[in-house]
Amino acid sequence: MQLSVNGTDHQLEVDPRMPLLWVLRDLLGYTGVKYGCGIAQCGACTVHIDGEAVRACQVPVGDAWGAVTTIEGLGQPDALHPVQAAWIEHQVAQCGYCQSGQIMQAAALLSETPAPTDADIDDAMSGNLCRCGTYPRIRAAIKTAAARLRDS
C-alpha cells in the first residue's frame, strides 16, 4: 500500500490492521510521534490526516484516508511552525513526551478556530494528557500562537 507522510510517498508491505502509530514509529522512523496509552486516552500519538487531528494509535494504517503530517512535518528546528515557536517561547515542555501530540492538536485547533476562547481551548485540548502538568503554559502558548497567526 501507499502512504504519504510529510509530503513523502512510502510504499509499504504491511498488515493493514497495524495502527498508523506503529507504522510511523517502527517502520518509517517518525519517532516524534509518541506512544502513551494505545487506547485514545492520552493524545501523545496525535498526527494530522488531511489537516485533521487524529489519534494514530486508533487508525489502522489501511484506513488512513489521506496525507499524514507528523510533528516532524509541521516544522523543523530551523523552520518552526508558529505553534512550535510559541511553545519554545513559553518554555512549555517539562519531560516533553506529550508535547508532539499537544502541538499537533493545537495546530489543528488554530487552523479551524483562529481566535479560540478558553472554552474552545478546553474542548480541543482536554484529550491530550500531560502527566508533568504543563497545562498553564500550553494555554498561554496557544494564545500567543493564535495572535501570531492572525497577524501574519
Partner: peptide
C-alpha cells in the same frame, strides 16, 4: 532551557 527546541519539534530522542 537547552532542550526546548528539540522537545517542541519531535526531535528529542527518548529511550523509547
Amino acid at each position: 532551557r537547552i532542550d526546548m527546541v528539540a522537545k517542541s519539534t519531535g526531535t528529542q530522542t527518548y529511550g523509547i
